[in-house]
């Protein structure tokens, strides 16, 4: 009995997650050595001097800001696609004015060199 379109999604979660556990169980049953191997990280055979986990400097940090603006914009754009004809030309004008402003931001970021980092 199907009560909602989302019901199969929840049901699918069961075989998908069960499949992951099944693979782990199957592997534990057949592999010759059950315990995990404890070892160092691979860098080509030699040992590093520090742990790798660190505040990893991402040179593309400014890109994340530009991305965030567009990501927010998508929140409006998804529902917008369903009402374009209903609302009429003003819907299109407003949405693309908004997008145009964001694109101007992209051009500015580009001119400032934020989209290249080496």
């Amino acid at each position: 009995m199907r009560t909602s379109d989302w019901q199969p999604v929840l049901v699918l979660l069961v075989p998908a997650v069960a499949g992951v556990f099944l693979l782990h169980a199957l592997s534990a049953a057949v592999r010759p050595v059950r315990e995990p191997l404890r070892t160092g990280p691979f860098l080509g055979g030699l040992e590093p001097r520090e742990h790798a986990l660190s505040r990893f400097h991402v040179r593309w940090y400014p890109v994340t800001m530009v991305f965030l603006a567009f990501d927010m914009e998508m929140l409006f754009m998804y529902p917008w696609v369903r009402v374009v004809t209903a609302v009429g030309p003003s819907a299109v004008v407003e949405m693309f004015l908004f997008l145009g402003i964001l694109l101007a931001g992209v051009l500015y970021a580009w001119r400032e060199g934020a989209l290249r980092w080496t």
Binding site: G44, P48, E50
Partner: peptide, 26 residues
């Protein structure tokens, strides 16, 4: 092992720096 220390960076920031031996079997 210690964690990474910080050092000056090419863009004028002070950031974590990792010391790694790359190779010989990459």
């Amino acid at each position: 092992l210690p964690l990474a220390g910080r050092a000056d960076d090419r863009d004028g920031l002070r950031l974590d720096r990792l010391h790694l031996p790359l190779g010989p079997a990459l």
